[in-house]
Nucleic acid binder design. Structure first.
Lengths: 231, 231
DNA sequence: CCAAAAGTGTTCAGCTTACACCCATGA
DNA sequence: TCATGGGTGTAAGCTGAACACTTTTGG
């Protein structure tokens, strides 16, 4: 069998997945980190990760690893980069594929994370991480910033129902800028894919703010008729 | 040794690199494909690829593989995605990392490519490729389109010296749109990082067009003082 | 002298930005 | 009644898009 011989000549490598898990809490963007449970760098802060197994694709591996920490399925999850420098993991040659996830912090079950020593960190206050995980987070943040401007992925970080001020705070946290609230509301509502509900959120103010819902059907319709999302 | 045990439990995988090599020829964007030399799918068209070896990083592997086909070093090369679906290569489980390269077709040595059966294809006229290589090209093209609008990577596809009409044709080929030549020239020259030379390119017209050179120093200066490249 | 590509300014519309005051409510 | 955040409209400046004629020169 020529083909088997051709493949068999080559080396094989451990392949791992590392997940950058973003969450949003009132007004700050956070990342979920875990305490590493085995050597090398045991006890250090790291991204949640795990090794690829034979019976799953990369995307499936990322879903499995995300689920094992958060208990969440059907989460926004996107592949980022592949890291393969020779010494990146001092214990063995490991090729690692990074994914980032956007989750609703309210859905995240604190209890489950305990066994991994998981903790949310504001991005500016995160500890130094093992290997190239700091770089992974930097790149994930760049991607989130870029992509959230041209695609409505930010909604994955909010609850189903949210107010316009909450949405504005989210974009301000992601992009580290301040927006004028009149202009922001005008821009977002002019896109006509937020459905206004007859409910108010009253935790943040005495007056209360109307709740909205992202209407994916209207969004798709708009996109198909040439509309461009842009924040 | 606990750590060794932990790693050794896991499977290892073949890791490959596939290169999407873009070139630009007068007015069309092209991709360089090769005839596959071994089973499975022997004789079919594919991207240039190769297996990762122990002593090199992913980037080094991509450089080596690109060099083996084109004889070129110091080429614009950027990692794209990682492909790991279970059946993507029917012969074995292979995790493949795609890279795209932007080369100057004038530098490419036709002779070297012969041994791989390499051939340039216009994107619309390319044959069907093996495995997921068609998807890899689609994604590479999306990335090239997006990135060439906000970063001056397009110049990697032109010779050192080029005319404004050549540059315009390049952007028209990448983005599949027509630009108004007055607006295009105005926009590109207002950025002040093209150096006008005292030479004319006279192959394309009787009048001849002035040659320009991309001045990376001026470009960096502009970027550092807040300028945003945008086409 | 003519064909073929290079080169050159201005105008208008639409979008982005800046900006200040009233409203509703719980404590 | 007052403090707090929610909600609203308009004007000015700027940017992007549309548009036509002259220049050069080899054949």
């Amino acid at each position: 069998m020529l083909k088997k011989k051709h493949y068999a000549e080559h080396s094989r490598f451990y392949v791992a997945i590392d997940c950058i898990i973003f969450g949003f809490d009132k007004s700050t963007l956070k990342v979920l980190l875990v305490k590493r449970k085995f050597a090398p760098m045991k006890g250090a802060w790291s991204l949640m990760g795990g090794f690829l197994i034979d019976k799953e694709s990369l995307d499936e591996a990322a879903e499995r690893i995300l689920f094992s920490l958060t208990g969440l399925n059907n989460v926004y999850l996107e592949q980022l980069n592949c890291y393969g420098d020779i010494g990146r993991d001092p214990a063995a040659r490991v090729i690692s594929v990074s994914y980032y996830a956007l989750i609703k912090t309210e859905d995240y079950n604190e209890e489950l994370g305990v066994k991994y020593g998981a903790k949310w960190f504001e991005l500016e206050k995160k500890p130094d991480l093992i290997f190239d995980h700091n770089i992974m987070i930097d790149k994930a943040l760049s991607r989130l910033r870029r992509k959230s401007r041209s695609q409505p992925i930010g909604f994955n970080l909010l609850s189903e129902k949210f107010t316009i001020p909450q949405l504005q705070k989210l974009y301000e946290a992601i992009h580290q800028v301040q927006f004028d609230k009149r202009n922001f509301r005008k821009r977002i509502l002019s896109m006509h894919f937020l459905e206004k509900l007859n409910e108010k959120e009253k935790r943040a103010s005495r007056k209360g703010a109307f709740l909205y819902r992202f209407d994916i059907v209207k969004y798709e319709e708009a996109i198909n008729s040439g509309f461009l999302f842009e924040i």
